[in-house]
Simulated scan of single mutants.
Amino acid sequence: MLRRVLILVVVLVALFFLPWWTLFSSHTDWPLPVVLTGTVVFAAALLAFPFLMVMGHGRRRSDRAARVADTTLGVIWVLFAWSVPGALLRLVLMVSGVGDPARSRIVAVAVAVVGAGLLAWGYREAMRLPRIVRRDVTLPRLGRGLDGTRVVVVADTHYGPFDRAGWSARVADAVNELDADVVCHAGDIADGTPEQRREQAAPLGTMRSRLAKVYVTGNHEYGSEAQGWLDLMEGLGWETLHNRHVVVERGGDRLVLAGVDDMTAASSGLAGHRANLDGALAGTEPDLPVLLVAHQPKYVREAASAGIDLQISGHTHGGQIWPFHYLVRLDQPVVHGLSRHGERTQLYTSRGSGYWGPPFRIFAPSEITLLTLRSA
């Protein structure tokens, strides 16, 4: 525990120190009131941030505290990330013969302007209706009767401290306009309990499909009453694929829709919750094609071993805020898009429809995905 606390302190200090140094120190020679004001703001934010995170995302679940903490995290991450290329700009200016304080002031203003612009744009991207991403996916075992099956994927809605009930309703309308045969929610519905987020999640009940609406848990459900979310989704008319499957049929051909709990379920302490692919496929005919919904892309290792035809996942958010996708790639095999794993298995990883935590999306646009399944 002490080691974790020390690591957290070091990371936080680094996140806040580099932007402060870039903007207000590093030989900028700003007037003293400017430096003092900037220093006080950064110091106050650094000291308040851990407490606000605990109040917002701990047992109290204060939405007001969470909004401030999450926004602070996004702002400081963007300023930190762009302070790094700011150091390269400093080097270029130095080679070009630009001396201090002009050199350091140019870097400070550039980082501030780029950061502010990206944050404004990123907020708009986070709050907008997700773009529709269309992909054809050929499944060699898919029968001709199911050729053209339209699968709409929603993932990572993350209903949370920023009230997005209106956004949720617009997402449902957009899904319904796509005239889906199957709708999948690939997990991470919300940050909070079903009681807290019921109003924001309610529009999920208005989504329509011809054959099935299926849902699996994500890792965030296991921090906020996973079984309650399963019960709520059943009440909204969804098939909850809690390590189980359903079979859909069209034109005389059949497709297995299977789902597993998130990979974090086993450590949640909830009885009967764990990712269990054998249980999800129990009783299926081995020759039928299988579409598996599993929240995390890295579950594709198990899917490929079992000969799954297509896995649908979310979780990564496409990185959400550049350059975070490099860190995501350390944990997951894919950040976004369609990929192949083994001889048979394909994986589609959605960037997600909402956002987690900081209300920003920078170079990682949200999406509602329309996958059109094609037979060989």
Rank of each mutant, 00 (worst) to 15 (best):
G307E: 08
V335F: 00
P365W: 05
A306H: 13
D156G: 05
L236P: 08
L46M: 03
L232D: 08
G166W: 12
G97S: 12
D262L: 05
N276W: 12
S104F: 09
T71G: 05
R135N: 00
G143S: 08
A116R: 14
F324N: 10
R340Q: 11
V92Y: 09
A48G: 00
P130M: 08
T284S: 10
G251M: 09
R134G: 00
T369H: 05
T71P: 03
P85A: 13
P50W: 07
L118I: 11
L327Q: 06
Q200V: 06
A275R: 13
V175Q: 10
L91A: 14
V151P: 04
V154R: 04
T72V: 05
E367N: 02
A226E: 01
S26F: 15
T138W: 00
R144P: 12
V109T: 10
K213T: 08
L281K: 06
A303F: 08
T206E: 12
L36H: 02
V153E: 05
A65G: 02
H341M: 13
R351L: 05
T316I: 00
A81G: 05
P194H: 07
Y215G: 03
G235P: 07
A280Q: 12
R198A: 10
S62I: 05
A112S: 11
A155W: 05
Q200I: 06
G38Q: 02
R197Q: 06
S83E: 06
L2I: 15
I368D: 02
V152T: 04
V152G: 05
R135S: 00
L204H: 07
V133Q: 03
F42T: 01
G117Y: 14
G97T: 11
V133F: 03
D309M: 04
R3H: 15
L211C: 11
R131H: 12
I132R: 04
T39M: 00
P161R: 06
W322A: 13
G38N: 01
A169Y: 03
V75F: 04
A306K: 13
P85V: 12
S62R: 06
P85R: 12
A110K: 08
V260G: 10
E285V: 10
A110S: 13
K213W: 07
G187S: 02
S350R: 03
R134L: 01
W30K: 02
W77E: 12
G228K: 04
E367R: 02
A169T: 04
